[in-house]
Amino acid sequence: MENKTQAQKRLIGGILAVTGAILWGIQGPVSQFLFQDNNLSPEWLMGIKMGISGIVILLFTNFVKKEPVMDLWKKPKNLGVFAAYAVFGLAAVQYLYLVTVNLSNAGTATVLQSLGTVLIVIFTAIFYHQLPNKYEATAVLVALIGTWLLVTKGHLTQLAISTPALTAGLLLALAGAIQTMLPVNLLKRFSTLVVVGWAMLVGGVIFTIVHPFWVDVPKLTLGTILGVGFIVFFGTMMSFICFINSLKFISPTVAGMLDTFEPLSATIGAVIFLNTSFNGAEVIGGILVLSTVFILALGNKNE
Results as ranks from 00 to 15, higher is better:
G107C: 01
T180H: 01
G116M: 07
K74S: 14
L144R: 06
T152V: 02
G51I: 07
G197S: 03
I55A: 07
L103E: 01
F233H: 13
L156I: 14
P212R: 00
M200V: 10
Y85H: 09
L288Q: 09
G235F: 06
A91H: 06
F243M: 11
I209P: 07
A106T: 04
I241T: 01
K75M: 13
G280N: 13
Q27H: 03
L23S: 12
F123S: 10
E262R: 14
G223K: 10
D37V: 04
S277V: 14
N300R: 14
V93H: 07
V118Q: 04
V210M: 05
K74I: 12
D71M: 08
L187A: 09
L144N: 00
N38F: 11
F230Q: 00
I161G: 01
G13H: 08
F82L: 11
A125E: 00
V18H: 06
F207Y: 15
I287V: 15
V289I: 15
I120M: 03
E303M: 05
P252M: 04
G285H: 06
K248G: 09
M257H: 11
I206C: 03
V69F: 05
K66H: 14
N105C: 13
G107M: 06
P218M: 01
L220K: 00
I225T: 11
L119S: 05
V56I: 12
L34V: 11
P42R: 05
W24S: 12
W44L: 07
N185H: 14
I272H: 00
H129W: 00
A175P: 09
L226W: 07
G223T: 11
I244V: 12
T224E: 01
I55Q: 04
L166P: 01
L144M: 04
L172I: 10
V184K: 15
L96F: 14
P252A: 06
